[in-house]
Amino acid sequence: MTLATDIALKPKDFATDQDVRWCPGCGDYAILAAVQRALAKQGIPPHQIATIAGIGCSSRFPYYMATYGFHTIHGRAPAVATGLKVARPDLQVWVATGDGDSLSIGGNHFIHLLRRNVDLKVLLFNNRIYGLTKGQYSPTSELGKKTKSSPQGSVDNPFLPMSLAVGAEGSFLARSIDVDAKTLADVLAAAGAHQGTALVEILQNCNIFNDGAWDHLSSKEFRADQTILVEHGKPMIFGANRDKGIRLNGLRPEVVKIGENGVTEADLWVHDAHDEDPTRAFLLSRMEYPLFPVPVGVLRSVQRPVYDALVNAQVDEQKATRKANLQGLLNGRSTWVVG
């Protein structure tokens, strides 16, 4: 296990001397700063951390992190990181990936990573567009979106990444918005502490090819009414006046006004992030604008056996119970002597 040191770390201990090449105004800058702050706070020194990415604007991330880092190939970061984590459980491994990288070309690795529950922290930069290739629609782009590759509007139905992740048995699912520094800091800290795959979807603005894609959630004007911060053990309340809430009618969430029609706080859905049953996490993952406020915070956090720990436990167990004897192994079961 990686251990926090006593020496106080600063965000700049995680910054490299490389020129950051994102477009001015890109949401990725805020995410980079938030991650560097979160790692400093967490206290694990840079040499015990590796940052692995695929390909995309967001996947440039490792170059700007003063940890060990690997900028791999499109969609494959989860696989490279899995191999690294199995080989080196002593390192804390972060994965940076985009919506195209993780959900189109890397979709297969993404779901299998969640299923295995490898101890990786995954930052999914969701800007609902292919940034690096200059603006084609992505698997999270909304139907009807006009892009260079969909001049009449996209006819490709999108994924909800969190719904996919629930279906893939994700043990830790969180969401934040690039500009929401407070929530981002909290979910990054929680992801860092989770054992197993910790997926953090970050709603990120690409101001060049999809500017304003999340304005309805990120702008100060709408944020309070159109997002909801879910916190374990607390009733789901939102709104600028904190007077709205979510009530569960059977398995159907509904928006209610506190104080109207006899609704009190006691009627609201109390968020249980640790619920083993994924049903409610799935309901949360389906809450979409404009019918619902979009949940941010930790949607789900449950303990499940961790793949890399299981692999290494088997290796340790076999090493302890069966003595390695290479000559014996080469000899096999039956031999004969000539001459």
């Binding site: 690997f70 696989a79 490279v80 899995t82 690294l84 080196r88 390192l91 297969n108 690795h109």
Partner: peptide
Amino acid sequence: IAAICAAIGAAYGNQ
């Protein structure tokens, strides 16, 4: 693809 990529990750991790 995952098989070789994981192996590359392990190579980076010195196995």
